[in-house]
């Protein structure tokens, strides 16, 4: 579904020096897979995602989206970030209709489809609220509705729940997993929360500190469907978490 071959990238710092952020990263994500990338902050995870969605041209390497046979509109890509990035001057309804407007969906269908997704993410009744009037969790629901409404094949998520409180975060994880299971999407998810990575993913890619490289890819053997509220008690969770920790800690600042 997504193939990244020896992608590397560097920035020029304000002092004029070249800073290598990504070095030789190769990732292959299968159709309908939930793939998570964890790594220390500043390891280039966000840059990697920006390259994957096409916002940044990599300095080296290639990115290919292989359009799959199953679910989702071919070529359509979703992108959900830590800040929900809703249009502040648009209501929930208007925000969710944006991608439909871009795709020139008929006016009457736009409203209908948007309303359906607003209901699915549990925002029914808030159609005419502005983002400012919503809590962080509700903004996130709206961002998810806005992405799912145009049925992308791949959804990229950059620490989407990073700014939420623990309770809201777990609820959002459950919503996401339910959606992923029923809608069959390929999801590439970035986090620095190991519990979250294990609860959600099929495989976890561990990155090193700057310049970021992919150090290991660890499969998550836990069965599905998973109970995100009790995931820490699942058999095998502890040992997996320890394994991921030991991969990560060599790269953490003392």
């Amino acid at each position: 579904m997504l193939r990244m071959d020896s992608v590397s990238h560097s920035f020029i710092t304000p002092t004029g020096q070249r800073m290598e952020v990504l070095s030789d990263v190769s990732i292959s994500v299968e159709e309908n897979e939930f793939f998570t990338v964890v790594g220390p902050s500043g390891c280039g995870k966000t840059t990697l995602l920006n390259i994957a969605v096409g916002l940044v041209e990599p300095a080296g390497g290639t990115v290919r989206h292989v359009t799959g046979a199953s679910g989702g509109r071919p070529g359509a890509v979703g992108y959900i970030t830590q800040d929900s990035n809703l249009l502040p001057w648009a209501t929930v309804m208007e925000n969710v209709m944006v991608p439909l407007e871009i795709r020139k969906v008929k006016r009457s269908e736009r409203r209908e489809q948007a309303a359906e997704w607003i209901r699915i993410v549990g925002l029914g009744g808030f159609e005419d609220h502005y983002p400012r009037q919503l809590s962080g969790g509700m903004q996130k629901r709206c961002a998810i509705a806005r992405t799912m409404v145009y049925d992308p094949e791949i959804v990229f998520m950059d620490e989407p729940f990073g700014a939420l409180d623990a309770l809201t975060k777990t609820t959002m994880q459950k919503i996401l997993l339910d959606l992923w299971q029923t809608r069959r999407k390929t999801i590439i998810f970035i986090t620095h929360d190991l519990t979250e990575a294990i609860a959600l993913s099929d495989r976890v890619g561990v990155m090193t500190g700057r310049p970021g490289t992919l150090k290991a890819v660890v499969p998550v053997p836990l069965g599905r469907p998973r109970d995100v509220y009790r995931i820490t008690g699942a058999p095998g969770f502890e040992s997996l978490r320890n394994e991921l920790w030991s991969l990560l800690e060599t790269d953490l600042d003392p």
């Binding site: 209908e112 549990g122 009037q133 969790g137 509700m138 409180d165 309770l167 809201t168 299971q181």
Partner: peptide, 22 residues
Amino acid sequence: MKLAGQHEVSTAVASGDVVPDA
């Protein structure tokens, strides 16, 4: 339009989701 599986995810607005209102 009926979307499959919506009942599974129609978790009502949860406790953390407080509306800052009037």
